[in-house]
Amino acid sequence: MTATMPTGTTTPAASAARSRSWRPSRRLVPTLATFVLFVALFAGGSLRYDGFFSGQVLLNLFVDNAFLIVLAVGMTFVILTGGIDLSVGSVVALSGVLSAKLLAAGWAPVPVMLLVLVLGTALGLAMGAVIHYLDVQPFVVTLAGMFLARGLCYVVSVESIPIRDPLFTAFATGAVYLPGTELYVSPSVLVALAVVAIAAYVLACTRFGRGVYAVGGSSHSAMLMGLPVARIRVGVYAISGFCSALGGLLFAFYALSGYSLAAVGTELDAIAATVIGGTLLSGGVGLVAGSLLGVLVLGLIQTVISFEGTLSSWWTKIVIGVLLLAFVVLQRVIVRGGPR
């Protein structure tokens, strides 16, 4: 429409000025709560245990959970569209086993990594295509993907295969020191943080990213608004597949082996981290930074329980369950409190 229209009484400048007054969105409340929880947990641990209050304990959260961070990023994309991806844990194991097997067979490390990443992306792409074009529920499709990937692991190798490739071990044992300190992280952490940064940028600043939120808000509306819904819905599963494969590589760096039974149940951790980080499971609301926080909270709980010493490891599960409950109820309260 090119012609001029009668301009109304409200000038754009006026309405823009009015919009400047910033108020914290209700939707950020869960993410803020997660941050507060993280700080409180860390402070509590520091008061209670000797040696807890150290930069390295904090950094080790990243080191130990680098692969989970990457998984949670992929999961965030999927959940933002209102979907779910149950296959991520199995894809992590498959990536590890496949890398180990190929390296043992004499492949060079870089082609192995590329192949694994391409395979993970392709699996995600295939699942996304089935979900979108054949209109089958994501839960079911990714469940089948989960079985398929886990089954392929066993086909590749039932036994655990050690990894001795120099590049992989360099990644595993390498330490990147923070400038001017004794503190270090593994190279994997840098990869994970790069993934977080890229994902945050894509979600906030690209049409694809905004489209992800739109599809999660209302897929039907997004379609009628002319958004490339197919590309977005298939795309998020491809992204999740890529992240799973990358997470698998990071996990392989961490464990220096490929094992078919590795990362069982990791999909639940990734989902839990995403939800605790403030992403609505029904889609449309959430931040990658929140998911990162979610992973850190999960890691911190484990650290606290290991520092406690007398507590058995199953308390971790119970605490995570209780946390999930708390955040779900919090989200529920916020959604219900809002206008219809």
Binding site: L268, V275, L281, K317, I318, G321, V322
Partner: peptide, 27 residues
């Protein structure tokens, strides 16, 4: 209670017990 009374999505409501339940069994 979580699903019918609080109106929480079933997947996530039962995920709570799925995660915590095995811990309870271990307990």
């Amino acid at each position: 209670l979580l699903v019918a009374a609080f109106g929480i999505q079933p997947i996530i409501a039962t995920l709570v017990l799925m995660t915590a339940g095995r811990g309870l069994a271990m307990l």
